[in-house]
Nucleic acid binder design. Structure first.
Length: 748
DNA sequence: TGTAGGCAAAATCCATGCGACGT
DNA sequence: ACGTCGCATGGATTTTGCCT
């Protein structure tokens, strides 16, 4: 049989006891490969059992169960019922079954070790073709190809639909799609001219370009579902899959498109903790990809479509291009994450962190550790103590060093051999060989170090360098999430006592560093989990670093030195200027998404004044100017919006929160507001509680605003947070002082 | 289909107490 | 003298979003 090499794009599905894979060949061919695979599970027998016709064969194998070797049977089951058979056997008292609750296609990837988003090799014959794609049939499992560096040369398409709502939010049963902008990697175009034409042109473009990846923003939760409903209404089949299939709902709210990876760039935001608001503008801004010239907000579309259609289309095209840009700058990371965890690329961003870690661990367990994979069970969540936070020394400090442990929890797990098999329920660590979790972590960290070393051999910005950098980031992300995974009640390997042991060692470690610093005559100003803030004396800091590395056997980094840093009594909130002159704000209102822009900006400027000039009066006068401007109603409405996320469905709220009341009012007027959406409101003047006076931001006029609320509860309170500890009274901020124009901040 | 715990802050909720008022 | 209504007060609870 000839060898066939391909880059695994997607697992297409099951055909009897065969798995179908979509791939890309080194010469750019798009192919399907059919590989025989029989599902199996393990049984640790403890009693007899009768014959079952679907059992194809049984092998005696050695596995481990929490480290202890057990003799067990690997039972191969034909057809689709290996899970049912395992459960039947357990009910009969035949023994304990393992690995039976894993889906067929996942089992194929886990047991063969085949990684999606990587190059594979199989012995296969050409069988024929399907809708122009060659089909190969293989007799055996794939193996990784020796050369993983080649670029598969993916074809990518991004798209952005525009809906025209009759009122408020668009509803698929009522409102048409009036335009779809499509970017093919080099240019953008927009289809308009009637809904039928829009959809047909879109489908034609997909067929013509035949993309491997289709990307968009909110495609999984919104657009595919919307477009499909519109198509159905018109009697059109939304054929965009390879071979003409429609998008179909797959696992966990993900939409699958046959033969193509459907990647929602919104879900990338979940990967990057620094991205807070989850708009396309935010994500593009975070990646330094530029902003739209004229953004269009949802509530404007209807009016602008009639008055200034070009602007709507221009914005839609910006979005399609931004999605393409976002995808291009994250694709290496997505594919690395996919190949490390074994989750196909279109699912890997949808999968929650715990499932990514779990997939990696299942592969490690099955292939490397020969450890049985426990079934998922519903268990009660057990809380345990976490990291230690040191009470800060309030006040303005000068020359403060920040020492950070590098990957503290993974390092502690390896150093102390903390794993499921090595920690007893009461938290003792047993002697013996290295456990599964430390071994899995060492493999991740070794691979990461290899990637980082290799990365240095390539010029910055080259394809190889970028791919390797994405890989090392993905490896770090998985390694850092293993600790949290052990404390997650949904985990197959849920082990709160293990998680508690890890954090206990962390607290022990930080405490010993605090003692050491004090004994060296250094002031400890603050500390949180794996970091410590101490007065900076270069020689002593060096001494600390080498003491930690030699005595504790852990790596530490002198992360930064604050030229000046301000603490209040509160933990997890401070602001400082580094030795490089960069202002950093941590935890304070200025970096929170649920405060008005004016309050945040006022706080930033007060901090700037305080930290750069060191003069309290200077900072106070900035605060007063802001308060005064608010009292006079001189601030732009846009800066008054308070955004809060709806984290659950409206009827689940026990308290009457302003954003919930606003959301209810919006729904009554036809807007779609769901859990996960952010609600923006402005506080207006009038009688009653705050929640009665909060109104949707786009409905409020300047003369309705409760300016005193913004002056006192937003601006003065955030400024007080900074100045309160320095002897400034609330009254001195609230009462009028010098008058200076705010034009420099908001323009004339 | 949910990595973890620790934390601050604001608004609301709710029990309590007090004074005014009517019976 | 007694019940209750309205309101202020302060602690508890709910809620969000941050930090590591």
């Amino acid at each position: 049989m000839p060898k066939v090499e391909f880059w695994l794009l997607d697992v297409a599905g099951r055909e009897g006891d065969n798995i179908d894979l979509w791939g890309i060949t080194p010469t750019g061919g798009r192919i399907m490969v059919r590989i025989p695979f029989t599902a199996y599970f393990y049984l640790v027998p403890s009693g007899g059992f009768g014959a079952a016709p679907s059992v194809q064969r049984v092998e005696k194998v050695f596995r481990r169960r929490l480290g202890r070797p057990v003799e067990c049977l690997r039972m191969y089951v034909q057809g689709g019922d290996h899970e049912k058979l395992a459960e039947d056997l357990m009910r009969e008292g035949a023994g304990e079954a393992y690995g039976y609750d894993i889906r067929y296609s996942d089992l194929f990837l886990i047991s063969t070790g085949a990684s999606p988003s990587s190059w594979l090799m199989v012995e296969a014959d050409e069988l024929g073709s399907l809708a122009g794609y060659k089909i190969y049939g293989s007799s055996g499992p794939p193996s990784p190809s020796p050369d993983q560096t080649r670029d598969p040369g993916l074809r990518v398409l991004s798209f952005n639909p525009v809906y025209l709502p009759a009122q408020a939010s668009p509803k698929p049963e009522r409102d048409p799609v009036v335009a779809i902008s499509v970017h093919d990697g080099s240019k953008v175009e927009t289809f308009t001219g009637g809904e039928e034409n829009v959809l047909e042109s879109f489908m034609d473009r997909v067929e013509e370009l035949d993309p491997d990846v289709i990307t968009g923003f909110q495609v999984n939760k919104l657009h595919w579902w919307y477009l499909q409903q519109r198509a159905r209404k018109l009697g059109i089949k939304l054929a965009i899959g390879r071979g003409g299939g429609e998008p179909h709902g797959s696992l966990y709210g993900h939409v699958s498109i046959r033969g193509r990876a459907n990647v929602d760039v919104l879900e990338f935001a979940g990967e990057v903790p620094e991205i807070k608001l989850e708009t396309l503008e935010e994500i593009a801004g975070h990646l330094k990809l530029g902003a739209p010239e004229e953004p269009v907000e949802d509530f404007e579309v209807r009016e602008l479509w009639g008055r200034d259609r070009d602007r709507v289309i221009g914005y839609s095209e910006w979005r399609a291009k931004a999605m393409m840009d976002v995808f291009n700058s994250i694709s290496d990371y997505v594919f690395s994450l996919s190949s490390i965890t074994g989750i196909p690329p279109d699912h890997v961003l949808t999968a929650a962190t715990g499932f990514k870690v779990e997939n990696y661990l299942m592969r490690f367990a099955e292939i490397v550790a020969k450890e049985l994979i426990p079934p998922r069970r519903e268990v009660r969540h057990v809380r345990y103590p976490g990291g230690m936070v040191i009470q800060p020394m309030p006040g303005l400090h000068e020359r403060v060093a920040v020492l950070d442990f590098k990957s503290m929890y993974p390092s502690l797990m390896i150093k102390y051999n903390i794993s499921l098999e090595t920690v007893t329920k009461d938290g003792r660590i047993l002697d013996g060989e290295l456990g599964v979790l430390p071994r899995a972590l060492m493999l991740l960290l070794d691979e990461r170090n290899r990637a980082r070393e290799e990365e240095r051999r390539y010029p910055r910005g080259s394809r190889e360098q970028r791919v390797l950098d994405a890989k090392q980031k993905a490896l770090k992300r998985i390694a850092n999430a293993v600790y949290g995974y052990t404390g997650w009640a949904g985990a197959r390997w849920y082990a709160p006592h293990v998680a508690a042991t890890i954090t206990a060692k962390g607290r022990e470690t930080i405490s010993s560093v605090v003692e050491k610093a004090k004994s060296m005559g250094l002031e400890v100003i603050y500390g949180d989990t794996d970091s410590i803030f101490i007065s900076y004396e270069p020689d002593k800091a060096e001494g600390m670093l080498s003491w930690i590395e030699s005595e504790l056997g852990l790596e530490v980094k002198l992360e930064k030195v604050y030229h000046k840093v301000l603490f209040t009594e509160a933990k997890k909130r401070y602001a400082g200027i580094t030795s490089e002159g960069i202002m950093e704000i941590v935890g304070l209102e200025a970096v929170r998404g649920d405060w008005s822009e004016v309050a945040k900006k006022a706080q930033v400027e007060v901090l700037e004044a305080l930290l750069r000039t060191g003069r309290i009066e200077e900072a106070l006068s900035v605060a007063r100017r802001w308060v005064k401007a608010a009292r006079r109603g001189e601030l732009p409405l846009k800066g008054l919006i308070i955004w809060k996320q709806l984290v659950k469905s409206l009827d689940e709220y026990e308290a009457t929160a302003p954003h919930v009341i606003v959301a209810k009012g919006m729904i009554e007027r036809g807007w779609t507001v769901k859990p996960g959406d952010k609600v923006g409101y402005i506080v207006t003047r009038g009688p009653g509680k705050l929640y009665m006076r909060a109104k949707p931001y786009f409905e409020v006029k300047p003369d309705q605003v409760d300016w005193d609320y913004y002056a006192e509860k937003q601006i003065a309170s955030t400024c007080m947070r900074v100045l309160g500890g320095l002897g400034v009274s609330e009254n001195s901020i609230l009462t009028a002082g010098t008058t200076t124009s705010l034009e420099e901040f908001f323009g004339p």
